[in-house]
Design a protein around this nucleic acid. Sequence first.
DNA 1: AATGAATGAGGTTTCATTCAT
DNA 2: CATGAATGAAACCTCATTCAT
Lengths: 213, 213, 213, 213
Amino acid sequence: MARPPASESARETRKNVLLDAAIALWLRHPERIPGVAEVAMAAKVAKGTIYLYFKSKEDLLLAAHERNTMIFFAALIKRASQPEAMTLDDMMRLTQRHIVDVPTFLPLATLVAGLMHKGITPESAQVFEQHMSERLSTAGALLCQQFKLPDAAHGVRLLMQSYALILGLWQLVGGERPMCTNEEIGAMLHPNYTLGLDDALRSLWYGMINRER
Amino acid sequence: MARPPASESARETRKNVLLDAAIALWLRHPERIPGVAEVAMAAKVAKGTIYLYFKSKEDLLLAAHERNTMIFFAALIKRASQPEAMTLDDMMRLTQRHIVDVPTFLPLATLVAGLMHKGITPESAQVFEQHMSERLSTAGALLCQQFKLPDAAHGVRLLMQSYALILGLWQLVGGERPMCTNEEIGAMLHPNYTLGLDDALRSLWYGMINRER
Amino acid sequence: MARPPASESARETRKNVLLDAAIALWLRHPERIPGVAEVAMAAKVAKGTIYLYFKSKEDLLLAAHERNTMIFFAALIKRASQPEAMTLDDMMRLTQRHIVDVPTFLPLATLVAGLMHKGITPESAQVFEQHMSERLSTAGALLCQQFKLPDAAHGVRLLMQSYALILGLWQLVGGERPMCTNEEIGAMLHPNYTLGLDDALRSLWYGMINRER
Amino acid sequence: MARPPASESARETRKNVLLDAAIALWLRHPERIPGVAEVAMAAKVAKGTIYLYFKSKEDLLLAAHERNTMIFFAALIKRASQPEAMTLDDMMRLTQRHIVDVPTFLPLATLVAGLMHKGITPESAQVFEQHMSERLSTAGALLCQQFKLPDAAHGVRLLMQSYALILGLWQLVGGERPMCTNEEIGAMLHPNYTLGLDDALRSLWYGMINRER
DNA sequence: AATGAATGAGGTTTCATTCAT
DNA sequence: CATGAATGAAACCTCATTCAT
């Protein structure tokens, strides 16, 4: 019923409301991807309104994923821009807080990876990749300084490989279960995943920084 | 009233025919997941017949993924059982041949990860995990010997982490494109992926083997 | 719930059931074109079933129109095949009974003419025209004999022009009202249409037969 | 608070701009009825503005049709008011120029006939019919004089029947194709239609004038 | 008077799954 | 065992119309 002005920022706000609704819905029923109708209802807008903001359902999911990702990058870049030297533990904390502990992050990333080939227009995919590249470069360069890597490319690679590890490990260990609705299993699994991830990342970073090439 | 006794192997044969058909179809049209009707037609059976062999479409995809995985494990276990000491390059070769070079392996793995929460019965999921665990333990133990790791758990972890890296990196770099139909891009990308993967795995293994814990 | 055999005739029967349902529905609510969902419900089949028999809603409407038309042609051809000489009054009676008195004939013809360009595949349109041409030729040739026209082409033309008159006049006079739900107006109009049509057809036929060319 | 007094003619002007836009759009893409949004864009007004001038989309189409029709009538009445005796060829020329050669006339007439029962308010329909009746009477009376028909009713009837023939024949022969975008077919068809129409009208008029009643 | 974002009913279509034969 | 017509839920998307600004 709201009739917001047409400004660009209002548009972004509205988009975020829709993404929030979609995410909330998915968290409430993790066993199924919410349909457009449900998202609309949850956001208290009409079904058609969604299509004013997203080209398709998959586009919306991609946007949600992008938002998650961008939040992580923002935090990473912010920390890496500070003068105090970063440690591996800082990275772990950032990862934990903005990826592992965000309940929709990894499921959504997995879904997007799996469904990307369905309802995503090449344009949307390209925009997404563009944004990713930008942040990846920025963050990679900063990491390179922080960890004294030979060059910026190493920073980017380290970042990508870390993310790959985080995502792949999650799919291996936890992804098969529907976002751990079952408390018992979830409780058992999550530490495992976190511990395993910690171990893996430490190995990767150690190798990345120390092995000669 | 006894169920046909000799049919068990025939049943497996038939299952494989269906999986072959599904895979072949997907390779022919990588941009879309083949529908049950198409698979049935390609395998020259009726739609309903598929449901005599698989509980659902997702179950079929999971079976295809499992078959891919088991082939890899068989090769790995076979190699690791030989007395000649393995090198990291041996691992790379196995990975390349049985994972990276199998065109449906990683897309299928991605899809299965993304759709696992949809039409898979808990039983099927459990069976799959059971099989995986067995091979993982076996292979992990062998790797432990080959690479002189502290204990079998390290072998298992190394294996999982490597696979996670392979899968995650593929999703990051190549998975968004529909199995690289575009020759030009594919040609450009694949080496990148392979190279990047090589770099990543070497770092991981180096760190895993050398860092103290 | 019925599970008929796959025979061609059964298919035709089923098609007719669907057409009947659509027609009946339209007669019950002449102010709106029935939706596919309603037709399905009325025919007690599932929505998807309709698409096993018709490519689209428009295709269904076209089929209904074709059925109407074919019934008229069948009657005309049957009568014109009999040895007794036909009179103009015979034509009028046939027209009245199989076109004017069939409540959906002219509305449907009008609708089809107006919507033909929307959801009809070229193939369907071509099939329809093919069928029309065949009957038109047959009936035209017979009329040519019956009314001693110079050649068969005159018979075809006479038929087309008569039909054009019937349809055009109906659109002018009665088509704008939703199939005459209003009794008062309908009662007033229908005789008008019939009378006017009678007059028009007599003029057309008189001119067609008598004027020299 | 008085409504703008000078605006009545401005209102008509604006209406015509909208009709022009709609017609132009339809001519550019004959395969689809232009949507309100497109019309608005083409006329450089906002979507909502259209509804300040027309009650509905169908209302707009009806208005366009009415404009076409009124232009034809004006020409007919003008010619029939001149003292020189009219011939059938004069009628043919008028028909050709103001109906057949106006590319949107017959498609629009067909569409209006087919959709009349949808979004037209009874008021609009009545106004349209009122205007039609007036011109029909006027023109009919003039034709009656020109062609020495028994009475004015015959003139009206002749006019209606002729129009019915024109419209019906067009729907039969050319209406199913989307306004003949295909040059080849169009070229083939149009002469056919014109010739067939010529033949039909001559028969109708011959019978109308000569047969005794 | 003009705007255009929002509406939401309406439509088409797909497709995994069932079940009578 | 095999079949494939039927199912029917679910999805997506369009677009004429409204109404707060």
